[in-house]
């Protein structure tokens, strides 16, 4: 019965694995809700920001902030990449990175260089192996990311843009479509793409304190920050959703493995019993 015992040990170990994956699945399921609540809570701010920018853009069309002006030639592109800190979330990060690597190669083929800022451990680990220029990293944002932790990396890129070191800024993250679907998304941050919100018709101008330029600069910076922050939250929700699905699949596979191992175990046991009986019968016949 040596084989039977080994199978039994194996069954036990798969069972333990299943316990772990089940637990992870449950944890993620509850965390999705929280992440979605955070996402919802951050929306009003971005909406108001868009309105304010819309009013500002409408109120003084003659002043163009550099963040709003498309540059003619692009020599260097910046990417803000948002990934998860931890693994075990299926193909979430891999999908995003694959898309990005493709895009970066396309840029490099055109002779455009790429600067990166990584938010999240996985992106930092992945992209430092590539031949790209990593200019900023922030990791371990936890379950409740705060905008304060993102200011640094965003400022690196905004400064680079203002100084003309980069001519375009992209934001890459996993968009949370629903629990089953997360989409690897690359959005343009700078120059801010004109949207319908940006030219809502309003017939008044503001009083500016201290003046229009400073206020606009301030508003735009905050707006970019809030966009990145929202992407971080989207990514967080995606992470938990992807992990939940991956862990569910793992639990199901473990169940299947246990079933087939149990079958093998029973067969081995029966075979041993049959053999014993036939040995006894054979022995009795010989006597």
């Amino acid at each position: 019965m040596a084989g039977a015992r080994e199978i039994r040990t194996k069954i036990k170990s798969v069972n333990n694995t299943r316990k772990v994956t089940r637990a992870l699945e449950m944890v993620s399921a509850s965390k999705i809700r929280k992440a979605q609540d955070l996402m919802k809570a951050s929306r009003p701010y971005a909406r108001m920001m868009r309105q304010v920018i819309g009013h500002l853009a409408h109120a003084n069309p003659e002043y163009k902030h550099p963040f709003l002006v498309e540059r003619e030639s692009i020599k260097r592109v910046g990417y803000v990449i948002i990934s998860t800190d931890r693994g075990l979330c299926g193909g979430l990060n891999t999908n995003l990175f694959r898309k990005l690597v493709g895009e970066m190669r396309a840029w490099q083929d055109q002779g455009v260089e790429v600067d990166l800022v990584c938010i999240g451990q996985k992106a930092a680990q992945f992209f430092r192996r590539l031949k790209v220029n990593l200019v900023g990293t922030v990791t371990h944002l936890g379950e409740k990311p705060q905008i304060a932790e993102l200011i640094g990396v965003i400022k690196v890129m905004l400064d680079a843009y203002t100084a003309g070191r980069i001519d375009r800024l992209q934001l890459a993250y996993s968009d949370f479509v629903n629990t089953m679907t997360q989409r690897a998304t690359v959005d343009q941050l700078l120059p801010l793409p004109p949207s319908s919100d940006l030219d809502s018709p309003h017939a008044w101008d503001y009083l500016y304190e201290p003046n229009a330029e400073t206020v606009l600069e301030h508003v735009l910076t905050r707006y970019i920050e809030s966009l990145v922050y929202q992407a971080v939250l989207e990514n967080l929700a995606s992470e938990h959703a992807a992990r939940m699905v991956a862990m569910k699949a793992a639990s199901d596979n473990a169940t299947k493995a246990i079933d087939s191992l149990t079958l093998v175990y029973n067969k081995a046991r029966q075979a041993a019993i049959t053999q014993e009986i036939s040995e006894i019968v054979g022995g009795a016949a010989a006597v």
Binding site: A124, L134, G136, T137, V138, G152, V153, V156
Partner: peptide, 17 residues
């Protein structure tokens, strides 16, 4: 404060590299 946050992000990247 913003400057120092930006510097920290850069250092983090350099350390990772």
């Amino acid at each position: 404060l913003d400057e120092s946050a930006a510097r920290k992000a850069k250092e983090e990247a350099e350390r990772a590299l």
